[in-house]
Amino acid sequence: METKLIIILILMIAGAIHSLHARDLLSAIVSYGVVGYSLVVGFLLLKAPDLAIVQIVVETIALIIMVSVLIISTREDLAEKSTVKIKGQSYVNIRNLSFVFFALVTGVMLLYFFNIVTTGLPELGIHETRMATEYIANGVEGTGSINLVTAVVFDYRGYDTLGEATILFTAVMGILAILRLKTHKI
């Protein structure tokens, strides 16, 4: 179980790194799809089928929107970028080495602080349900839903879902406002 999760996470990290370093934007988006669909498998391993279903839908929509953003672009800027070369200067100089050094120090420091923060957490797979104990015991009779995630989202935390709907509405209004504007000549 934990081994499978580690393999999925390594796949996600590899996909993310390739996505950030791909030369072609389309292959970057496809590698980003690898990250998202690996997350679906991770959710299934963690026994969260609702999250897996929602993540499949969300990832597909996000990929479609990203490709539709990409196909309005032309190849001009990419072609221009490939002609710009480093002017006879080697990558290995004292400035770049110091950047790499500071990046490594910052990364190790952040990992150290993450380790401090998560020492209170139990190991993966050992978890005491505190608030959810009552939900698990009485959720089916109390809400009439045999799916406890649905019971929490739509009944116990219904106001959260109302706020989520408000955020979605605001985001759609923002997208409409941004895409409807006519460009003004300055």
Partner: peptide
Amino acid sequence: VVDPLPQAIVLTAIVIGLA
């Protein structure tokens, strides 16, 4: 069963992340 509470919260977060 596994804890349903983090799953419900992540469900909300996924949809807001798409927005």
